[in-house]
Design a protein around this nucleic acid. Structure first.
Lengths: 159, 159
DNA sequence: CTCATTGCAAAGGATTTGCACTAAT
DNA sequence: ATTAGTGCAAATCCTTTGCAATGAG
């Protein structure tokens, strides 16, 4: 299946911080770090249920927080009313494209934005910390009617 | 004070749509349309209370919805966990700068972004609908320590 | 008068927290 | 053994909804 030891870095992080390495934490980390999607806390809970390794809601949230603090996962808010989590992979700063029809998220990088937003902030006396760009639109699959290549996992969307 | 008839357009809208023109609606519209801030539903409620014209929470939300539908007000979500509302004024599409220290919002326009985001979306097979750019940073006042020129109204922030 | 709006309180969805219980070290 | 994590349920926060009372046209 692929993701053999995707959680290794997380285990290392926990050990370094003298935090217990529990089965629940490994399960949550495995799901988030092993996914290419931008999962919501609920998505994670559901995937774990489906996988037969149910974890309590509170623990899912608490573990996501630890993952974010470890730097292995990034928290996103696309204005949908809930947060999503994605593994930090290599791509440091990237932008998002959100399909308003199926909810799929595509990411891409554009170096210009980094510099542009810094200049824009300076022009208004702000010391830039970060920026968030989300482009809302309709993906190719939704436009051409092909219900294929979407989120893939049925237990994810629709919400 | 300035805003004599800022709600005229709203009254016209309500009449055109055969909707009752109530005191509460005018009060909410007066606060939102007459403000230069990006108010939350709670800010609106509090401003009305302070103004001695208290309006029920549900009515505030319902009226904000009508204002948004009328096109006179725009709804924003800066990922703070709640929504903000701002009058549509002239500025059609603009970006936001949010001070992570005091919560102040500054807006600005940059024509390039419109075209850029359209191209970015197309490059990934998306039909662009809109975009949202928020630059997070620290405003000049907060950096220089001067607690002046901030949100102005004490009943607004802190939340 | 008649129907839509209002206000209050209950309902909701996402996320957090209190606390007894269980497990990691 | 100790200490921290876990689950469940209760609690929060923002927003929505049900429903009787109220007010606009």
């Amino acid at each position: 299946m692929g993701g053999a030891g995707v959680t290794d870095a997380f285990v290392a992080y926990l050990r370094e911080h003298n935090q217990p390495v529990t089965g629940q934490r490994l399960a949550v980390a495995g799901v988030v770090l092993g996914s290419r999607e931008h999962l919501s806390a609920d998505d994670v809970t559901r995937l774990l249920d489906a996988r037969g390794a149910a974890v309590g809601t509170a623990t899912v949230y608490r573990t996501l927080e630890v993952l974010v603090k470890s730097g292995l996962v990034v928290e996103r808010d696309f204005g949908e009313g809930f947060r999503r989590y994605e593994p930090s992979r290599g791509m440091p700063n990237h932008e998002h494209l959100l399909c308003t029809a199926c909810g799929t998220v595509r990411e891409f990088r554009d170096e210009r934005l980094e510099r542009m937003t810094t200049l824009m902030a300076e022009a208004h006396g702000f010391a830039r910390q970060r920026h968030r760009l989300v482009i809302y639109g309709v993906c190719e699959e939704c436009r051409t009617g092909k219900g294929s290549s979407g989120p893939a996992d049925p237990s994810l969307r629709p919400r």
